[in-house]
Design a protein around this nucleic acid. Structure first.
Length: 568
RNA sequence: GCCCUCGUAGCUCAGUUGGAUAGAGCACCGGCCUCCGGAGCCGGGAGCACAGGUUCGAGUCCUGUCGAGGGUACCA
């Protein structure tokens, strides 16, 4: 398993060269001078580019040494050892250090990928640390609407990225089965059950009225029989459990349409019933973070950074708020269960909740750095240019199930992961359906299928990949075409792309990376004939490149939760 | 009012945490099947809301203006 990505490796070399210059010339630069090694978009600028001379020159100027960046760059360049991974070094522009890697180095990486497919796209930065991703966690009051799909896809994408980076990941759904919304849902369902039996029932004023309530009511009545309705007072309590089961089964089956499964469904009600909510409040009181006012119990959030208002923990009627349960819940996550890190995926309408939550974690004496909250913006569902309303209570919304049925899981996942979490997504159903064959997801899948097809066909034609012990040398002899190099170079970005997706909590980087690879595969396919019985050596080498590209594409698609079909 | 996020091509969106000549898909126009999958390839037009500032260098950071969405509950 590669401990470092190629970019990290190059950066370490540059840092070492800088340190050598620093010592020799007594520049007195800080040991951790900030600089970047990037992949320049202009290929004339080499495979990697470092801005180290500019930042070093700026630091030197502050300490009275006036050395032009290009001069500093030249000094550092002189200290860089040359080998395959650093074949040429140029000083360019205002003082960029442009580094070129020898083609043979890329051929070796292609060979490594083919020899060890299970190692590609895996890093060990997580070192097995236990991390929880809590996502979706929609109120258990009905099917998920399409915003829930974005949450599901993003959360699962993040979980997959973290797994690939060496974390042990637990996926959790927090079930809000204790609040007013769930009560309202139960009351609404009760009314629907009564109506189902021909009785006259009053729907709660703001109750849930979607068509799905009739199906839920039928399912509930089937489980409970008919007698339970006779007991007018106990009916709601009797309904509570079955209602939760029914709605969670529905949600679970919807989520599974996207290929997602939760490891745990964590009940808010259980926190109340076990006394953990009270205990959490007591803990906050011990820290003097709690006071009484206006008959309610308050958390003094305003003492903490980013908060200007205090928050109610226990209402004046004695009922604890959702926020109090959140205290118990996060204590349970971070202390009782001991996750090294906890990631919550929330929609923007919870943004005001973020600083309060962080204050709460800090107030309980927990490390707030262990809690990371990823916010994503809403999905604006549009059909034929008109926005589709999404209100669960009125029932006028499009469910995740309906959208997946219409456009397919792969298209939904890929589409939702081509947007940065913080951007508003406009999802035009009519257009997605129309453009189905032109959808970028098929572009990537097609590229993968074509590679598979070539590899299968090669076998039929008796063209073979080189032997394992000969593969490195074989590729060095036969590869060299620019299209081959471009593809090989791109494939080596996988580690850095994965790391970027991890650090920035943005799996969408990977979708764009996959599209670039697919494009490079097409260019390679155009310019380089793979199957050629008159040149078995060249064919073998190019088959290796096909196989490596196939492995990397399949890996990325897996990380996105999208299928990688061998044929389409 | 205050706080957060966002204004990039006709449309939908990326932009490697401040890098060199800003990209992709769709749409539009023009080319490419004697050949491993044309769901493809090649070419073309068109863009960083506006005004300042910071510095070697700004789509990216700061301030202001305009515009969009969200938040500001003893709801969750």
């Amino acid at each position: 398993m590669a401990a470092l990505t190629l970019r990290q490796e190059i950066r370490a070399r540059v840092a070492a060269a800088l340190a050598a210059c620093n010592a020799e010339h007594e520049w007195n630069l800080p040991a951790e001078l900030a600089f970047e090694v990037t992949r320049p978009r202009n290929p004339d600028h080499g495979d990697f580019s470092a801005n180290v001379a500019m930042t070093a020159a700026a630091a030197l100027r502050k300490s009275g040494v006036n050395l032009p960046p290009r001069e500093v760059a030249a000094q550092i360049a002189g200290r860089l050892p040359k080998d395959g991974a650093m074949a040429a070094v140029d000083v360019a522009g205002p003082g960029f250090l442009n580094l070129k890697v020898a083609p043979a180095w890329f051929w070796d990486r292609v060979a490594d990928t083919v020899l060890h497919p299970s190692r590609t796209g895996r890093l060990d930065v997580g070192q097995g640390r236990w991390i929880q991703v809590e996502f979706v966690s929609a109120n258990p009051t009905g099917p998920l609407h399409f915003g829930g799909a974005r949450n599901a896809v993003l959360g699962d994408g993040l979980a997959r990225v973290m797994e690939a980076c060496g974390y042990s990941v637990q996926r959790e759904f927090y079930v809000n089965d204790a609040g007013a919304q769930f009560d309202l849902f139960v009351q609404s369902l009760l009314a629907a059950c009564v109506q189902l039996h021909g009785g006259r029932a009053e729907f709660p004023p703001d109750g849930y009225r979607g068509a799905y309530m009739h199906e839920y009511a039928a399912a509930a009545c089937e489980r409970l029989g008919t007698d339970w309705l006779a007991d007018a007072e106990g009916a709601a309590d009797a309904l509570r459990g079955p209602a939760l089961d029914i709605v969670l089964e529905d949600v679970r089956s919807e989520i599974s349409l996207l290929g997602i499964e939760f490891d745990q469904w964590f009940s808010e009600r259980a926190l109340h019933e076990s006394g953990q909510v009270e205990a959490a409040i007591a803990r906050l009181a011990d820290q003097d973070a709690v006071y009484r006012a206006e008959g309610a119990v308050w958390f003094a959030a305003s003492r903490y950074e980013g908060n200007d208002q205090d928050v109610v923990l226990v209402r004046s009627n004695g009922v604890p708020t959702y926020f109090a349960a959140d205290a118990a819940y996060h204590w349970d996550k971070l202390r009782t269960r001991g996750f090294d890190r906890v990631l919550n995926v929330w929609s923007v309408d919870h943004q005001g909740h973020v600083p309060r939550m962080q204050a709460l974690v800090e107030a309980m004496g927990l490390d707030r750095a262990k809690l990371k909250i990823v916010l994503y913006d809403l999905v604006k569902l549009v059909r034929d240019g008109n926005e589709v309303a999404m209100s669960k209570r009125s029932g006028s919304f499009l469910t995740l199930r309906e959208v997946v049925a219409e456009v397919g899981s792969d298209a939904v996942r890929f589409m939702l992961l081509t947007r940065a979490p913080e951007s508003v997504v406009e999802f035009d159903l009519a257009r997605v359906v129309e453009q189905n064959p032109e959808n970028p997801v098929y572009f990537v899948q097609y590229s993968h299928a074509r590679l598979c097809s070539i590899l299968v066909r090669a076998q039929a034609e008796g063209l073979l990949l080189p032997d394992a012990d000969d593969i490195h040398g074989h590729l060095r002899i036969h590869l060299g075409h620019p299209a081959e190099l471009e593809l090989a170079r791109l494939l080596t970005e996988l580690g850095d792309q994965l790391l970027a997706a991890l650090e920035r909590s943005s799996p969408h980087n990977l979708t764009y990376y996959a599209m670039r690879i697919a494009s490079a595969v097409n260019g390679f396919y155009r310019d380089c004939r793979v199957l050629d019985r008159s040149q078995p050596g060249l064919s073998g080498a190019r088959l290796c490149l096909c196989d490596a590209a196939r492995i990397v594409l399949a890996r990325i698609l897996h990380l996105l939760g999208v299928n990688a079909p061998a044929s389409m």
